[in-house]
């Protein structure tokens, strides 16, 4: 075998989950719950370091492991936040956990958003449904480092008022002068919705103060949303390589080994989950 592999160093096992404590949990909607966790090992908690847009593999003893976007921002250290929809075996089992229960977490993985390249730019952040999970990290990071960015637009669409994630947080942002927050629902079944009604694509006509060549857009949402939102962003003349998408795939390892997330030679877990629209045009299977 290659002599290089023989090195007698005990390498860290990248498949090993770290045990973390659930600090706080509450429901965001009927089927989406917010979890705040902290590594049991103090040193890990103090050195936790990640990029907005990265993800982690979350484990439940005896049930399994699945990838989840990090919803918290690295600018608020010590804690990790996830918003999780109860949709499969692993998530059902996570939903049975209470505060102070332990959970296995490993990562962070993936590229995340290119924060250095985003500095000094205008941002247009568009999220639909659970797409708020990774993009909340980006928006909170940008607001915590507000002077590093130009104009910031936040567009958030949900099917109906009861399904909007982080509603309180985003309604508070409407009050802020340094971010243009636009919230919409496809249909208002409550009759009391104070913000806009209509598809998220109807919000783009109100984007006025950006310099398109100096703007980065970020999108995350259900697969059907990408095509229509990208059309709107192109109409605004934002360059294709400055439109960033966070994508979802089945993953079993997070570190480019298990193969499930592969598209041609691209591993969504290592080369993504954040891709530019230009990558997507050249990689037909990335979005349908």
């Amino acid at each position: 075998m290659n002599e290089g592999l023989c090195a007698d160093i005990k390498l860290a096992n990248d498949f090993q989950p770290d045990m973390m404590r659930i600090v706080r949990k509450y429901n965001l909607t009927d089927d989406v719950r917010f979890f705040q966790v902290r590594p049991m090992e103090e040193q890990k908690a103090l050195t936790l370091c990640y990029n907005p847009g990265q993800f982690m593999m979350v484990s439940r003893l005896g049930v399994g492991e699945a990838p989840f976007s990090i919803s918290s921002t690295p600018s608020r250290p010590g804690l990790l936040e996830f918003c999780i929809r109860e949709v499969g075996q692993v998530t059902q089992s996570i939903f049975r956990l209470n505060e102070n229960d332990s959970i296995g977490v490993r990562g962070p993985y993936g590229n995340g958003f290119p924060m250095e390249r985003l500095k000094g730019r205008d941002l247009v952040i568009t999220m639909g449904g659970l797409g708020a999970a990774p993009l909340r990290s980006l928006i909170l990071y940008a607001l915590d480092n507000r002077d590093d960015f130009g104009e910031i637009y936040l567009l958030h669409g949900a099917k109906k008022p009861g399904e909007m994630l982080f509603k309180t947080e985003f309604f508070d942002m409407i009050e802020r002068k340094d971010v243009n927050t636009m919230l919409t629902v496809d249909a208002d079944d409550t009759g009391k919705w104070p913000a806009k009604v209509g598809l998220v694509t109807t919000l783009f006509k109100d984007i006025k103060q950006i310099d398109p060549a100096n703007t980065f857009a970020a999108i995350c949402g259900p697969p059907v949303m990408y095509k229509f939102v990208i059309q709107e962003l192109l109409k605004l003349k934002i360059p294709k390589n400055q439109i960033l998408l966070s994508l979802e795939r089945r993953m079993k390892c997070g570190i480019g080994k298990c193969g499930h997330c592969v598209v041609k030679h691209i591993y969504t877990c290592m080369d993504g989950p954040v891709f530019s629209y230009w990558d997507v045009i050249n990689m037909k299977e990335l979005i349908y």
Partner: peptide, 17 residues
């Protein structure tokens, strides 16, 4: 070897290899 023993090396593979 390229897949398992380079970036994010896989300890299970390396041990057996």
């Amino acid at each position: 070897d390229k897949v398992f023993a380079e970036e994010f090396s896989d300890p299970y593979y390396i041990e057996r290899r």
